[in-house]
């Protein structure tokens, strides 16, 4: 400010069409407008993000359009003010003007991108309504401008219809592709279901085999026990038979001895009897 005052003092009463005081006032107004535009753009950005979400509502859309309209008006006014600021000729003021122009351009670019997003969403949601409004909107434009603009409007109209046709065709192709994809997914899921059932059956078979193995193992233990007991029985019976055979042989020997003794005694008695008979005859 001191520098500006000094320059003002140096230049004295001389100057361009716009005085420095007026320039500073306009610059301040333009800076304030640019800040407002930036704030509105961020607000609109947030609202656009909320579209097509549970937070979406007609009231939200109404607010969005009100802010957009206000921002359009503000941008127009700011543009006019910047054009007016161009009249200043001094060098340092020109630098400040360029900075303001850059800021305004950046804010304007952001504003345009938000407008495009909003337009995309509304076009997707309200295609038929937009077509009707387009038909209604075109006649004022053509009547408003001269014949040179009428050809431009015709080109716009043709390009619009062509784009609409291509969009419909691509949409049909997308629908067919989606239906085919869904059918494929469904078939894959059915296949997976069948294979899972097969897996469950195989698990059942595996369990049956395991149970059979366990039963056979238990039976093996029992059979081992039976085998060992029968083996012992066989041994014991063999021993018993052997003992009985010995007993039988011993008894036979005893009988033979008895018979021999009886024979000997009989012979002795017979001899004695014969001797007595002979002595009695003498």
């Amino acid at each position: 400010m001191d520098l500006q005052h000094m320059e003002n003092g140096l230049s004295g009463g001389g100057g361009g069409g716009l005085s420095e005081i007026d320039f500073q006032r306009l610059a301040q107004i333009i800076a304030t407008s640019i800040q407002k535009v930036q704030q509105n753009v961020s607000t609109m950005q947030r609202m656009v993000n909320q579209l097509n979400t549970p937070q979406d509502s007609p009231e939200l859309k109404k607010q969005l359009h009100q802010i957009m309209t206000y921002t359009n008006q503000l941008v127009t006014d700011t543009n006019n003010q910047i054009n007016e600021v161009d009249k200043c000729k001094e060098r340092h003021l020109k630098i400040q003007r360029d900075r303001l122009v850059d800021e305004f351009t950046a804010a304007l670019t952001a504003f345009q991108s938000v407008q495009r997003k909003t337009a995309d969403i509304e076009k997707t949601a309200l295609r038929q309504a937009r077509g009707d409004s387009y038909n209604i909107a075109r006649p004022p434009g053509s009547s408003r401008t001269g014949s040179s603009n009428s050809s431009a409007s015709q080109q716009d109209n043709n390009s619009f219809f062509e784009d609409n046709f291509f969009n419909r065709k691509s949409n049909q192709q997308q629908m067919q592709t989606q239906m085919e994809e869904q059918a494929d997914l469904q078939a894959l899921e059915e296949q997976e279901q069948v294979i899972r059932e097969l897996e469950n059956n195989i698990v059942g078979v595996n369990e049956i085999y395991k149970k059979l193995g366990a039963l056979v193992y238990e039976q093996g233990l029992t059979v081992d026990s039976i085998e060992s007991q029968v083996e012992q029985t066989s041994i014991f019976v063999s021993q018993g038979t052997e003992n009985l055979r010995k007993a039988s042989s011993y008894r036979n020997k005893v009988r033979k001895k008895k018979l021999i003794l009886v024979g000997i005694l009989s012979a002795v008695l017979l001899a004695i009897i014969l001797i007595l008979v002979f002595q009695f005859k003498n």
């Binding site: 859309k61 109404k62 359009h65 957009m68 309209t69 359009n72 345009q112 407008q115 495009r116 997003k117 909003t118 337009a119 995309d120 509304e122 076009k123 997707t124 309200l126 309504a129 937009r130 409004s133 387009y134 209604i136 909107a137 716009d156 390009s159 619009f160 784009d163 969009n167 691509s170 997308q174 989606q178 994809e181």
Partner: peptide
């Protein structure tokens, strides 16, 4: 009709381009 027409008229050509650009990413995502 004000909000519809205001939002749609200014950037008609850009809207078409935006729609084409938007549709192909959605198809690719699907």
């Amino acid at each position: 009709k004000l909000p519809q027409q205001r939002s749609t008229n200014p950037f008609e050509m850009d809207d078409d381009d935006e729609e084409e650009i938007t549709s192909s990413p959605s198809v690719a995502a699907q």
